[in-house]
Design a protein around this nucleic acid. Structure first.
Lengths: 325, 325
DNA sequence: CTGAAAGCGCTAACAT
DNA sequence: ATGTTAGCGCTTTCAG
């Protein structure tokens, strides 16, 4: 020990008590010298925590299974959790399929992160009611008592409208899916608002799920008519790709006769045959924000939610008519 | 305490010392009564472990990003880890992109699980050389010192051949990708062996990556000729779907004129327009087996690897000519 | 086969 | 602003 008591060191690292600058210097120097770092396990042990965060990923239907931003989500969660000295455990979509009981799992968790929670997920209720700290990444409509962070989807849609109008498109349709995410409600509401505000005509199509087949079928229905829209705002990049595929198949020129916009700015949008404009979200920031919120909750403080993160429309060929301008 | 010392309780639960049956009964009864369970954190603390397993998922290229069995993998890992009182932390594909250093992360891990390791992953070397217990899910060619478990891919390909031949197909081609997985080597080698053994002619096509576009381009090249194969064994379901798409586009009847086989038996195979026969793997068993192996490693015992898990060809319409038989 | 006791590295009153 | 001290719940020698 270089200069002071262990208590001061503890408080220096936790910041739970003021430490004089002089002392701080000494501690820091000594720590660097011997490569000291507080042991997370010992901390967890002493405070009675488990230092494990439960994470529920949106595996609800097989349809979402190949969600391309899923890996980024997982990585971000891991890194952010490590940042507050926690590790993670995925909460299975159904406890029955594995031979474990919910209680036993939840017992060893300090808190739970809900990624893109489904509104009518029956499991959700049970987790929330277990009385464990929870933060949702993606708004939760039903349970207003659950703190959440989300993308500023409203702003995203507004950017899309500004861009489309500027490019001369006047009949944008919206393609969403019949799933119970707050997200779909949000973009529908914003779409309607923008349509009305600009005196345009609304055209909304909801695919039965997020499968390629459903999207392509509905895209065909939407585009294979004389009064087809001149732009499609898809709720995911994968839907946007389906729309693009159908458009090309029908001989509709993109972007001349049809603009296509995706959401998420995933690899799908970037690598499509006609690169697709897409709303970029900040996954890392979103997750970091959620974990931060969880951290304050864990310290029995009140979290200030909701928190909205900015998104940016990335303009690509699929919606840019006069690329030369 | 119901009847004995805390020491005996400890040994009863850990099984590290024989406990008389009588005593065992008493302990069990008392534990059930008060709902006692050993505290994993305290255990970790006392033994100097972190109770955290690092997991590296195959995010190497964007191309694998929408791997459909990925969520199942994650769930299985979480559940299996919980089974040995561990939680997990995902090792980012690049430490640079996040502001953390490798040492700091690896330091808080008891061991690392490598999921489908890439042979020429530069990061792999560093993790292995760090000297932490490692188990690979999916064979590692380069580092024979790393314990691994894998699917019995050889058996899978053999089942495919048996089935195809039985259905009257005689010119099966193999479609893999130019990626550095032991998996691709294994199936190529087995394919060649089976071809030779049966006196057939080999036809192997390697897509540049696992993107849809690459697969469709190569599928077109493979099928749009007079001397096209009468069966395609794809290395993934996603490739199989691409082959199917191209075949239908070219007016080739599946399965009459062309059989298509996938690998992994994912949702993609089941929901394709023509349901695709696919080799089912046992993800949960694979992961459980790996974690088990890790557990013995953690206890400083020698693991008996390799371990191969059985796979089963699921026959569907895409390769079944006489469905009525 | 069972007990006693030390101690893992930290936190959190309580005291100064 | 800093120090003292008592544990957190387990594992693990060492001793019966």
């Amino acid at each position: 020990m270089a200069g002071c008591s262990i208590t001061t060191v503890s408080h220096y690292f936790s910041g739970k008590r003021p430490v004089s600058p002089t002392m701080g210097q000494q501690i820091q120097r000594a720590a660097d010298l011997i490569g000291y770092r507080p042991d997370p396990i010992a901390q967890a042990f002493a405070t009675g925590r488990t230092a494990v965060l439960g994470v529920q990923f949106p595996f609800q239907g097989d349809s979402l299974v190949s969600n391309p931003y899923f890996p980024a989500m997982l990585e971000s969660v891991s890194v952010a959790a490590a940042g507050i000295n926690c590790s993670i455990l995925t909460i299975p979509r159904s406890f029955e399929s594995y031979d474990i009981d919910r209680k036993a799992l939840l017992e060893r968790l300090d808190g739970v992160l809900l990624i893109d929670p489904w509104e009518d997920d029956p499991q959700l209720e049970k987790i929330v009611d277990y009385g464990i700290p929870i933060v949702a990444v993606g708004r939760l409509l039903r349970r207003s008592d659950v703190p959440w962070v989300d993308n500023d989807n409203e702003s995203g849609i507004r950017q899309v409208f500004d861009h489309l109008i500027e490019q001369g498109y006047r009949r944008p349709a919206l393609m969403t899916a019949r799933v119970n995410y707050a997200y779909t409600y949000d973009i529908e509401a914003t779409y309607r608002r923008e349509i009305q505000r600009r005196g345009l005509q609304a055209r909304i199509i909801r695919t039965s799920d997020y499968s390629e087949r459903a999207s392509e079928d509905d895209a065909r229905r939407l585009l294979d008519t004389p009064d087809r829209p001149d732009a499609v705002i898809a709720s995911t990049d994968s839907q946007a790709v389906s729309v693009l595929r159908v458009a090309l198949e029908l001989g509709i020129r993109v972007p001349d006769e049809l603009a296509i916009i995706g959401e998420g700015d995933t690899v799908l949008a970037r690598t499509a045959i006609v690169p697709i404009s897409s709303v970029r979200i900040n996954i890392e920031g979103l997750v970091r924000s959620a974990v931060e919120m969880m951290s304050t909750l864990l310290n029995a403080l009140d979290a200030d939610y909701p928190r909205l993160l900015p998104v940016t429309l990335i303009e690509r060929a699929s919606s840019t008519r006069h690329s030369g301008d």
